Measured scan of single mutants.
Amino acid sequence: MGFKLLSKLLVYLTASIMAIASPLAFSVDSSGEYPTVSEIPVGEVRLYQIADGVWSHIATQSFDGAVYPSNGLIVRDGDELLLIDTAWGAKNTAALLAEIEKQIGLPVTRAVSTHFHDDRVGGVDVLRAAGVATYASPSTRRLAEVEGNEIPTHSLEGLSSSGDAVRFGPVELFYPGAAHSTDNLIVYVPSASVLYGGCAIYELSRTSAGNVADADLAEWPTSIERIQQHYPEAQFVIPGHGLPGGLDLLKHTTNVVKAHTNRSVVE
């Protein structure tokens, strides 16, 4: 069995187990497998329904001669939608809004960016022009300005110390501490036991640490421990890039980060 097929099978099995364990909360999309990078042309966006009122959005972007996937989250909030992270750029984010209108038909009224990198804030200006209120932590807003990236308009308070959590509509926002970046936030959907790890969490097929220019490698494993301790009931975990899975993604990420750190020390 090929690795790609095995990865998709694991996603399907995880979703099936969740649907059985929580039949009222989960209505997993039966329309197909989780979209992969090879299936999404740059400039297009796919939506994948995880649970009743919960979707991931998947886009792709060219970077350094390669094409990478990027995940975000959409959560229903009454007759409105909360968006977590842009679709990595203005063109993708405009396509995301169009796809949401086509498939869901509810307005996106608020959006949260989970850290300051372009795959999370690139497209904020498109959201703002569409009347979406954009939010991020003060740290993310400051770092985005320093980096020359787009800056969300509103500040999220109460997320300055490791372990801080605040309720934001249908989700809980959690600051686990520094990891992929010093400002990275985690998003949890309690009604569906869905954990969105953003770039602080890796997919299972990833074996290298990737972009760690703004990471705190020493603190990252401790931050992941905080996530595990705060959300032990999480059933569906979405990484910032690639295929979702279960809580095993947290341990896998820790292993990859520690291996990278150990290699760096040896070198």
Rank of each mutant, 00 (worst) to 15 (best):
Asp29Glu: 11
His230Leu: 12
Gly246Asp: 13
Val37Glu: 04
Ala130Ile: 13
Asp64Arg: 06
Ile58Ala: 03
Leu13Arg: 06
Asn255Arg: 09
Gly65Glu: 03
Thr36Phe: 02
Arg76Phe: 02
Leu81Asp: 00
Gly240Ile: 12
Thr114Trp: 00
Tyr231Pro: 02
Ser27Lys: 03
Ile17Leu: 04
Thr86Glu: 00
Asn184Ala: 08
Asp79Phe: 08
Asp125Ser: 15
Glu80Pro: 01
Thr134Trp: 13
Asp64Met: 03
Val166Asp: 06
Ile20Trp: 14
His252Arg: 05
Ile74Lys: 01
Gly177Cys: 05
Ser181Ile: 02
Phe116Gln: 11
Val42Asp: 12
Gln228Arg: 09
Leu82Ala: 14
Glu219Leu: 08
Tyr12Ile: 01
Thr153Met: 00
Trp88Arg: 00
Gly72Arg: 01
Glu267Cys: 13
Pro152Gln: 14
Pro41Ala: 03
Thr114Arg: 00
Leu81Ser: 10
Ser38Val: 04
Gly240Leu: 04
Glu219Thr: 10
Ala200Trp: 02
Ala98Gln: 13
Gly43Phe: 02
Val237Ile: 15
Tyr196Phe: 06
Ile58His: 09
Pro239Tyr: 02
Asp118Ala: 15
Tyr34Gly: 08
Ala111Lys: 00
Leu73Lys: 01
Val11Tyr: 13
Ser208Gln: 12
Leu96Gln: 02
Leu96Asn: 01
Glu203Pro: 03
Asp85Gln: 00
Ser205Phe: 05
Ser62Asn: 14
Pro170Ile: 12
Val166Arg: 09
Thr222Pro: 07
Ala111Arg: 00
Ala59Arg: 12
Thr14Val: 09
Arg46Trp: 04
Val28Pro: 03
Pro138Met: 15
Glu44Ile: 01
Gly78Met: 09
Lys91Cys: 07
Gly32Gln: 01
Ile17Gly: 04
His154Arg: 10
Val37Ala: 07
Val212Arg: 09
Thr140Gly: 11
Thr261Ser: 02
Ala218Phe: 10
Val256Met: 15
Ala144Tyr: 02
Gly242Arg: 07
Gly131Thr: 08
Ala165His: 15
Trp88Thr: 01
Ser162Cys: 13
Gly163Ser: 04
Thr153Ser: 15
Met18Ser: 04
Thr222Trp: 12
Val257Glu: 10
Ser155Gln: 15
Pro41Lys: 03
Asn262Phe: 09
Ser223Leu: 12
Tyr196Ala: 13
His230Tyr: 01
Pro152Cys: 11
Ala218Arg: 13
Thr114Asn: 00
Tyr34Ala: 11
Ala215Cys: 10
Ala209Arg: 07
Leu143Ala: 04
Tyr196His: 02
Lys91Gln: 14
Glu101His: 13
Leu6Thr: 03
Thr153Gly: 05
Asp64Ile: 06
Ala59Cys: 04
Ala87Tyr: 00
Val166Gly: 10
Glu203Gln: 04
Gly242Leu: 04
Ser31Met: 14
Ala215Pro: 12
Leu24Lys: 06
Phe174Lys: 11
Leu247Gly: 10
Ser193Leu: 10
Cys199Gly: 10
Gly72Cys: 08
Gly169Arg: 07
Val11Gly: 07
Leu249His: 02
Pro41Gly: 09
Glu147Pro: 14
Val67Met: 10
Ser70Thr: 04
Ile17Glu: 06
Ser70Glu: 09
Ser191Asn: 10
Phe168Asp: 13
Ala200Lys: 02
Glu203Arg: 12
Gly148Lys: 02
Ala87Phe: 00
His115Pro: 00
Asp125Phe: 01
Ala200Glu: 11
His252Ser: 08
Lys91Tyr: 12
Thr93Ser: 13
Ser56Met: 01
Asn92Thr: 14
Val37Gln: 13
Tyr48Asn: 05
Gly123Ala: 05
Tyr202Met: 15
Ser205Gly: 12
Phe168Leu: 07
Leu24Ser: 12
Pro41Asp: 06
Asn149Phe: 10
Leu159Val: 06
Thr114Val: 00
Asp118Gly: 13
Ser208Gly: 12
Arg110Ile: 04
Val146Asn: 02
Pro35Lys: 07
Val112Phe: 01
Val189Tyr: 14
Lys102Ser: 07
Gly72Ile: 01
Gly122Glu: 14
Asp64Val: 05
Tyr12Gln: 15
Ser22Asp: 10
Leu9Lys: 02
His230Cys: 13
Thr254Asn: 03
Leu82Cys: 14
Ser208Leu: 12
Cys199Leu: 03
Gly72Tyr: 01
Ala66Leu: 05
Leu97Glu: 03
Ala215Val: 10
Ser56Gln: 02
Arg167Asp: 10
Gly78Glu: 10
Glu39Val: 11
Val112Met: 05
Ser7Trp: 07
Glu267Trp: 07
Pro152Arg: 14
Val132Pro: 12
Ile238Arg: 04
Ser22Pro: 03
Gly32Tyr: 01
Phe168Cys: 14
Ala111Gln: 14
Thr140Tyr: 06
Ala213Asn: 14
Gly131Cys: 01
His241Tyr: 02
Leu83Gly: 03
Ile224Ser: 08
Lys91Met: 14
Leu10Thr: 08
Glu225Gln: 02
Ala51His: 11
Ser30Gln: 08
Asp118Ile: 15
Val189Asp: 12
Ala90Ser: 11
Gly72Met: 07
Gly242Ser: 13
Trp220Val: 10
Arg46Ile: 07
Ser161Asp: 04
Met1Pro: 05
Asn149Gly: 11
Leu143Asn: 07
Leu243Arg: 11
His57Tyr: 01
Gly198Trp: 01
Gln229Arg: 08
Pro69Asp: 05
Arg76Val: 07
His57Gln: 10
Ile50Met: 10
Phe3His: 08
Val126Arg: 13
Tyr202Asn: 14
Phe116Cys: 07
Cys199Val: 02
Pro41Asn: 15
Ala94Gln: 14
Glu157Ile: 15
Leu143Ile: 15
Ala87Asp: 00
Tyr175Thr: 13
Thr114Asp: 00
Gly169Leu: 10
Ala165Glu: 09
Ser7Thr: 07
Val237Phe: 14
Asp77Tyr: 09
Leu97Met: 01
Tyr188Val: 12
Glu80Lys: 12
Leu195Val: 08
Gly163Gln: 13
Val121Tyr: 15
Pro41Phe: 07
Leu185Ile: 02
Val45Asn: 09
Gln229Glu: 06
Pro138Tyr: 15
Ala165Thr: 08
Leu243Ser: 09
Ser139Gly: 08
Phe236Lys: 01
